[in-house]
Design a protein around this nucleic acid. Structure first.
Lengths: 115, 115
DNA sequence: AATTCATTTCGTTAACTAACGAAATATAAA
DNA sequence: TTTATATTTCGTTAGTTAACGAAATGAATT
């Protein structure tokens, strides 16, 4: 179905989801770490992650009370792999992406999550 | 700006716009020919075309009372060219795309447009 | 077992999108 | 210049989406 294919583009058509994907290309992160960088409500970030997960871009691994999200190393669809690998070239020069990456390097789960 | 980049994906995240792009990869078409294949209102098709045009995917050429739309041979952004060339591989196997192409081959402007 | 903390689900709201028909615009033919 | 035809613009409506906070869930610690 054609709608299946537009789903991939739809997943990429939101700025916050693109930022999440780029962050996860730096390192895997839990929900509250992403929330800290994006400055959105936890529930909003969780929703974005579920969209990226259902499309096949990312997977999750449970780690105690945390849920780690990471780029799917084995996407269900060659199109996903293709997009993920070209995403570097596509948006690495963007200022917000650069500063997101810097924040991601420094972010500490134990400091950020429990206030 | 990151929103500029999501615009490209947003343009591709609608089934009818994907169908239009694939049709135009077969041959250039006027609005009413596209309308005939998609079975949408003329104003709706016109809107889709303006979105694809403003993103840089397609251009228009005036031909008397007709406006021909065609794939932009010189896109403003390397990302557009990249997507356009991979679009073949992405969605050529889809049934609706195949039947669209068949209809496009047969469609006759002078027969279809003036009822 | 109760508490704490991370995350998800739910319900709501505001903004956005795709669709339509009607009216406006533009070009060609009569 | 009137008429016909192709397309665009406008206004409206229904459906979708992204955001939030509150409540529910799940897992570790006390």
């Amino acid at each position: 179905m054609i709608e299946e294919k537009t789903k991939i583009f739809k997943a990429l058509s939101d700025p916050n989801r693109l930022r999440i994907l780029k962050m996860l290309q730096t390192k895997s992160l839990c929900v509250c770490e992403i929330t800290d960088v994006l400055r959105l409500a936890t529930s909003t970030v969780s929703k974005h992650l579920s969209i990226l997960k259902s499309t096949g871009f990312i997977i999750e691994t449970k780690d105690g009370k945390w849920v780690n999200y990471l780029i799917n190393p084995r996407p269900p669809d060659a199109r996903i792999s293709s997009v993920l690998s070209t995403l570097d070239f596509w948006i690495s020069d963007d200022q917000i992406i650069i500063s997101d990456k810097q924040k991601v390097q420094k972010v500490d789960r134990n400091e950020v999550c429990s206030r």
